[in-house]
Nucleic acid binder design. Structure first.
Lengths: 191, 191
DNA sequence: ATCAAAACCAAGCAAGCGCTAGTGTAACTG
DNA sequence: CAGTTACACTAGCGCTTGCTTGGTTTTGAT
């Protein structure tokens, strides 16, 4: 089993799996469906992945990793102004959320299907990401841009942002960037 | 098959099913698990429900119906002041969400498992509920309490509220009412 | 040209799935 | 008291599931 590489082939398989997991849900996606979508037979699948769960973990890791990378880059490019840091963070979040949409929907809906080991690993990744958010919100509160408890604000904001995967239409009139700006606009107080 | 009554027995079965659906997910909850939890054999289950999907639909209907009833009552009791209407609506939402938690978690996570007929019926229920929210937010915007596009604000707010089921701890320091108030506080502009 | 590693396939196993059929029984109803 | 209804039981059918096995082809470095 060639389990631990990250060949382009594997990346492609993960992308296809993500799509199927969104369409059907993890439990209803059979290894036969996955194999067919990938153009191989179901037995061959287990050459690339130890078991079905590992495919799920790979999908979620891919998405979370991307989000983390993008957010860090965005924060590096942003200055030290709390408001603009809030803006770039919201934009980066919606950007990955809606371009890597499949992976993130899977992460949101199928998290509980992960086995303990994978969940543990991915929890660390996600925590690293949320720490970025907490810092940005801390700065915003300190600067008087937002009111409320740090932890609470972070959760409300992330909730509002993550909820977009349930209704956002990429062909609609609004870009992810506009969406992000409108949210920031909504919750900052311009005195 | 005694399918269409709403006996107390059936209500209890639905409550147990909701709990299992949350713990295991709909697909992983077998009719045998459901039966055991209910203290009967798997075959007997189909005396109460036509099939497994009907149990899911019943769980979700129960939760949504409660939410709708509670929200209507809350709005009736509230005056015509836009801010207080916003408050009672947020409180009512978090109240059902966190007391009828199982049913609502199922509704959020397993919606796609509904068959077409059930989904159609329940979509109407949910739309009726969301219409209440839209009206309240319309009034808040008109009164200058909140800034932004009606549809967008509603979605952000509902996202923030619904997200609470992922992190709220009933044994924690905050009551659902406090939570609701802090959210409203966060997004209204006090000039 | 050689050969190991990587990728794949055909076939199928053991377990578990939703659901049905047919029966028993106790409590109501006329 | 006969007939009906509500609810539960046992037994198992037909099918699908994730995964394994044992063997074959493809690839690519030497």
């Amino acid at each position: 089993m060639n389990v631990m590489n990250d060949s382009p082939r594997r990346k492609e398989l993960i992308r296809l799996a993500a799509q199927l997991f969104v369409q059907e849900g993890f439990d209803r996606t059979t290894v036969r469906m996955l194999a067919q979508e990938m153009g191989i037979k179901s037995g061959s699948l287990f050459h690339h992945f130890r078991d079905k769960q590992e495919i799920l973990a790979a999908v979620i890791e891919e998405g979370t990793q991307n989000a983390l990378t993008l957010a860090r880059a965005a924060l590096d490019d942003a200055g030290s102004d709390p408001l603009s840091r809030l803006h770039v963070m919201a934009r980066a979040h919606l950007d990955t959320l809606l371009t890597d949409r499949n992976a993130h929907v899977v992460a949101l809906y199928e998290w509980r299907r992960l086995d303990d080991a994978a969940r543990d690993h991915l929890t660390h990744l996600r925590d690293a990401y949320e720490r970025l958010w907490n810092d940005v919100i801390d700065e915003a509160i300190e600067a008087g841009l937002v009111a409320g408890d740090r932890a609470l604000v972070a959760r409300f904001v992330l909730g509002a942002l993550n909820w977009t995967v349930r209704w956002y239409d990429p062909d609609g009139p609004r870009s992810p960037e506009q969406l992000a700006d409108e949210l920031v606009n909504m919750l900052t107080r311009r005195s």
